[in-house]
Simulated assay, not measured.
Amino acid sequence: MIKLNTHYADLKESYLFYNIAQKTKAYLEENPDQHLYRMGIGDVSLPLCGAVIEALREAVEDQGKKESFHGYMPECGAPVLRQTVAEYYGKRGVTISDQEVFVSSGASDELGDILDLFCPESNALVIEPAYPAYVDANIMEGRKIIHLASSKENGFLPEPDENLKADLIYLCSPNNPTGAVFSREQLQKWVDYANQKGAIILFDAAYEAFIEEPDLPHSIFELDGARTCAIEICSLSKTAGFTGTRLGYTIIPKELERGGLNINSMWVRNRTTKTNGVSYILQKGGAAVFTPRGQQEVRANIQVYKKNAAVLMEALDQCGIWYCGGKNAPYIWMQCPKGMGSWEFFDYLLREIQVVGTPGEGFGACGEGYFRFSTFGSPEDTKEAARRLCTLLGGK
């Protein structure tokens, strides 16, 4: 009889966002006339920008003509898109080659797939609160998880602990769920630590486009020594509204080696074995994001979400509630009022004002007592949700 992967039995019974969906479904069945103000799951609400739509249409037309038809794409990505991403980094003073860029079907997919490179006996350090998939993807492979707690006291940005022997280190900046962003000095400490320990950082940069303060790093490769210890995984989902289109990219420097093996070469071998590449249509649409017009249009959309963040932050300020995030990230991480637990506060908001957020406990034990708001909703719903929050929580 075939043996199954018994590590699946070690997973929590259900996924965080599934629980939220079930609770909201039950509420609407009991209250069918109510409108919910959804600021929980981090899905975008604005459509793809015009430059992307035009490129996608052109790509579809290309596929209908013999002279411009594309079949299988290069497994590591179309050369033009790989070069375009490398140039995007270059504009920020980060030098990478197109051969260090790998086109993916999105950051979430890549964060799971990349674990193929590391043996199950290696451990993974996760800063809590954390995106649940970091933990679950490693549990599925039987990997030991090191939970490094963060807190309000350290701004949810802990420093490396010299007593911990980490092999893989997950860093997310701007962070999901807290919205906190590492400074150059803070991130440099993690780079130095990884090089000292022989660890590898998996740097999740899915929200880098939301950074507005000029001194904050957008890429880990802005830091000295990162090319010998880091892999950067990025996405167009939140940057350009590709949540339903699925496209991202991964940067693996050619200097990155461990145990006599070159990790860039390993990933080439992995991709050429396990994938047939991302479709031509999606890659052409993705390349349009990096054109001057595309950049102008996606930045305009990001500004809508940032204005949503400003509306919510003003409401929390009026209520005297502590929070972080919002300014340089599309998430706001607030402390639950009156000592409420995370799920208790979720139920309270749903029941009293029909506002849906994400309980902090779902991101790890030290998220208990905190709550995440996403700023990807419509401006109209965000303003109404903020008004209701002020009324409920005693804002001025």
Results as ranks from 00 to 15, higher is better:
Asn328Cys: 02
Cys172Ile: 05
Gly320Arg: 05
Thr239Arg: 08
Glu100Leu: 03
Gly326His: 04
Ile211Ser: 05
Glu255Thr: 12
Ala107Gln: 14
His218Ala: 12
Ala205Lys: 12
Asn264Gly: 07
Tyr8Gly: 07
Gly155Trp: 00
Ser183Asn: 01
Gly325Asp: 10
Asn276Cys: 06
Glu87Gln: 09
Asp317Asn: 13
Gly77Gln: 06
Leu148Thr: 03
Asn163Trp: 09
Leu236Arg: 02
Ser97Gln: 04
Ile139Met: 05
Trp343Gly: 00
Ser45Tyr: 08
Thr275Pro: 01
Ala365Lys: 13
Ser14Cys: 05
Gln34Pro: 00
Ile114Val: 15
Cys324Arg: 11
Ala124Gly: 01
Ala166Lys: 02
Glu67Arg: 06
Leu48Val: 09
Arg269Gly: 15
Ser150His: 02
Gly367Phe: 07
Thr273Lys: 12
Thr358Cys: 15
Phe69Gly: 03
Tyr193His: 08
Glu361Phe: 14
Ala78Phe: 09
Ile353Asn: 10
Asp204Ile: 00
Glu29Met: 10
Ile2Asn: 08
Glu208Cys: 09
Asn5Ser: 11
Arg299Tyr: 00
Thr228Val: 06
Leu46Ile: 05
Gly198Tyr: 00
Val101Thr: 11
Leu350Asn: 09
Asn328Glu: 03
Asn154Met: 03
Ala288Tyr: 03
Tyr280Arg: 09
Tyr72Leu: 09
Asn270Tyr: 15
Lys12Asn: 09
Met73Thr: 15
Glu159Val: 03
Asp167His: 08
Leu316Thr: 01
Phe182Leu: 15
Ser279Tyr: 12
